[in-house]
Simulated scan of single mutants.
Amino acid sequence: MSRPRCPACLHPPSTCLCDLVRPVRSRIELLILQHPLEELQAKNTARLLHLCLAPRSELLVGEQFGPGLLDPARLSGAALLYPGEGDGPWPRGWQPSRLVLLDGTWRKSRKMLALNPSLQALPRFSWAGPAVSRYSVRRAQRPDQLSTLEAAALALQELDPGIQGLDDLWRAFDSLVSRLAERRHRG
């Protein structure tokens, strides 16, 4: 029998994140594709990001998404926020209407990208300039490997100068990291 979970953040009641949720208003929508093994993780920044950007955010859980889920209408005007070959800074004057993010370990996200050809066809970008992760509760191979929330926040900051609530999103993220570190320390 599984233990009870908050219906919004999917955490157990003792670690519920809902008090951290602050509304963020952006013109750019997010489509977060989350690997199934990430959905119930305590370090789930994608869920916090999704809740803060609702209703301009959609979170789908899976590894391979059929054409009905990643149809041309849903991906129209979208860009994939994912580092790799051929990525670069946003072209001047171009603004996607939707950012697609892959949430999972690097290995899992590469597999998700490989299994979904419609994602491979999207323009692919990452943020301009080096970024150093503030996500101290997880191991990364390099300091510029960001959590899903960090990557989205940096991209939205660059793409949507009219965004409202971005500072609150960063505070929510920092609070999550502090809580996770405290729990780890108590251990």
Results as ranks from 00 to 15, higher is better:
Asp71Tyr: 00
Ser136Leu: 06
Arg184Phe: 00
Phe173Val: 00
Lys111Cys: 05
Glu85Cys: 01
Leu37Asp: 13
Arg184Ser: 04
Gln164Phe: 07
Glu150Ala: 07
Gly68Cys: 08
Ala140Tyr: 10
Glu158Ile: 03
Val177Leu: 01
Gly77Thr: 06
Arg5Gly: 01
Ala128Gln: 15
Leu49Cys: 09
Arg171Leu: 15
Leu156Ile: 08
Arg22Thr: 11
Cys6Ala: 04
Ala54Gly: 04
Gly68Tyr: 01
Leu154Ser: 11
Pro13Leu: 08
Leu20Gln: 04
Gly84Arg: 06
Ala140Val: 13
Arg47Phe: 08
Thr148Gly: 04
Leu51Ser: 12
Arg5Cys: 07
Ala46Ile: 02
Val61Gly: 04
Asn116Ser: 07
Leu48Val: 12
Gln120Ala: 15
Cys16Ile: 11
Gln145His: 15
Ala79Tyr: 10
Cys6Met: 04
Gly62Asn: 07
Ala128Ile: 03
Ala42Asn: 09
Arg171Asp: 15
Leu10Pro: 00
Ala42Gly: 08
His11Phe: 08
Glu29Gly: 02
Ala140Lys: 06
Gly66Phe: 07
Pro117Gly: 14
Gly165Asp: 13
Leu122Ala: 03
Gly68Ile: 02
Leu51Arg: 14
Ile28Asn: 05
Arg25Gln: 12
Glu58Lys: 02
Leu31Lys: 02
Arg22Glu: 09
Ala153Cys: 04
His185Glu: 05
Pro117Asn: 12
Arg3Trp: 09
Ser57Ile: 04
Pro12Leu: 11
Gln64Phe: 03
Arg139Ser: 07
Arg171Tyr: 08
Glu29Leu: 00
Glu85Ala: 12
Ala151Ile: 06
Val137Leu: 03
Arg107Met: 06
Trp127Asp: 02
Tyr135Pro: 01
Gln64Ser: 15
Leu69Cys: 08
Ala131Trp: 00
Cys16Thr: 06
Pro161His: 11
Ala151Cys: 04
Asp160Leu: 05
Pro67Gly: 13
Val21Cys: 03
Ser76Tyr: 00
Ile32Cys: 11
Arg179Lys: 11
Arg138Phe: 02
Ala181Glu: 14
Leu115His: 01
Pro91His: 10
Ser97Glu: 13
Gln141Trp: 02
Glu85Gln: 06
Thr15Val: 13
Ala8Thr: 05
Cys16Gln: 11
Cys6Arg: 03
Ala46Tyr: 05
Ala114Arg: 15
Ala153Met: 00
Leu75Val: 04
Gly187Glu: 09
Val61Trp: 01
Pro67Tyr: 01
Arg134Ala: 15
Leu75Trp: 03
Ala8Gln: 12
Leu49Trp: 01
His35Ser: 03
Asp144Lys: 05
